[in-house]
């Protein structure tokens, strides 16, 4: 699912201007990374793309339709096709992993099935399959508050993978993981997008991860787009300008290239 933003601007309820004049055009199946200092507006931009946040200015077009002109029912059906991996996993601590993952399909399931699944999980095999790709298959019936931050982040990721969205969005999906696991997880997201031919937009704090894995890189600074280039054309000078306020480039650290899985049959990730 492609999308277009035209002159999008947004001021939060507290008066903070998060986005100004953002133009962004993404074709179906494209994969791009959003980079920029914290507070630059990456999360807000992703939530606007996800049709969760309505911008005050400009136009949003998703799938050649305007989400904010849709009826509530159509907006809900549109959102069911968009998967957003949140930065801090929005999962109730006492929920079981299987329930948290199956929640990815609430937008597609009829209500009776969602409610029945609370008593007897409707599709434990499906949840198990997604967790297995993230090396968490043995945690299916664990309670989420028994997991580490990085494991919880992978459960949230498994939920969105289970949703099988047409537009895959991820807001710093590896912020609680160590460098090796971050590398594998970002590679997995890209493989998923390529295999299913869906659009992928991920914001990443680590610049090197973005440059290594994404063909297109968008730099966000002070709520506006500073550059929008193929990864190979992003120069050192541009990055210095992007992170001028942080005094140094945030990097994930290097990982030997042979460690990253490149086979198309999606092997499970190994915990570092």
């Amino acid at each position: 699912m492609g999308f277009t933003l035209e002159g999008v601007g947004l001021i939060h309820a507290n008066g903070f201007r998060a986005l100004r004049g953002v133009d962004l055009q993404v074709a179906p199946g494209e994969r791009l990374a959003l980079i920029g200092a914290s507070g630059a507006g990456k999360t807000t931009l992703l939530r606007v793309i996800a049709a969760s946040l309505r911008p005050g200015e400009g136009r949003v077009r998703l799938l050649d339709g305007e989400p904010w002109a849709c009826s509530p029912g159509n907006l809900r059906r549109l959102r069911a096709r968009i998967g957003l991996v949140h930065q801090s996993p929005p999962i109730p601590p006492r929920q079981r992993v299987v329930t948290a993952v199956l929640a990815g399909r609430l937008g597609q399931w009829p209500l009776w099935k969602s409610l029945a699944s609370l008593v007897l999980p409707a599709d434990p095999q499906g949840a198990q399959a997604e967790l297995a790709r993230l090396d968490l298959a043995d945690r299916l019936y664990e309670r989420c508050d028994r997991l580490s931050g990085g494991q919880l982040q992978r459960v949230a990721l498994a939920r969105v993978l289970y949703q099988k969205p047409d537009l895959l969005l991820a807001d710093e999906p590896v912020s609680a993981m160590d460098p090796a696991l971050s590398e594998l997880t970002v590679a997995l997201l890209n493989e998923e997008a390529v295999r299913r031919g869906v659009t992928l937009v991920a914001s990443l704090h680590a610049v090197d991860l973005a440059l290594r894995h994404f063909p297109r890189v968008v730099g966000v600074k002070d709520g506006a787009i500073l550059f929008d280039l193929p990864a190979a054309s992003v120069t050192e000078a541009l990055l210095r300008e992007l992170y001028a306020a942080e005094g140094g480039l945030p990097l994930a650290g290097s990982v030997a290239p042979d460690e990253a899985p490149t086979t198309p049959d999606l092997p499970p990730l190994r915990c570092a």
Binding site: R47, A50, A51, S52, R76, R77, L78, R79, A80, R81, I82, G83, L84, H86, P90, P92, Q95, T99, A103, G104, L106, G107, Q108, W109, L111, S114, L115, L118, V160, Q163
Partner: peptide, 17 residues
Amino acid sequence: EALVGGGAPALASFFYG
């Protein structure tokens, strides 16, 4: 809110979220 953002109906979001 995350579940509503993923297209879940209000009642399902309440029971899961």
